[in-house]
Amino acid sequence: MKGSLIWNTQRYSSIFILCYLIYIVSFFISENNINFFTWSNFFLSFETRFITSITFILILVHSFIGLWTVGTDYLTKRTLGFLNKPLARYANIFRNMYSFAFSLLGVVYLLTILYIIWL
């Protein structure tokens, strides 16, 4: 995979997340009478649900890139070997376990979010 694709994905996803925040904040600013019904109307609209889903998928992608970077920086033979030499032998196992853990968390997170938004 091209480094520029990963780099761009992370930057553009953060811009989208910022836009989403502005979208949500603008609701609170523009709406004079905020109560359960106005909030429900706003949040249950197709546009908001769609944008929210995209945003949370992008949060997931953004954090995956960040976590992958952390794993390939700190859970390597070299880095663990700095801490403790025998630990270096298990670096790949640790990194795979770490990747599995955050992938599993990501799937649970995504399913939960989509369930909350759409069902």
Binding site: K2, G3, S4, I6, W7
Partner: peptide
């Protein structure tokens, strides 16, 4: 240099 490590680290 286009891979994810060479420059983008």
């Amino acid at each position: 240099l286009s891979d994810p490590f060479s420059v983008y680290r």
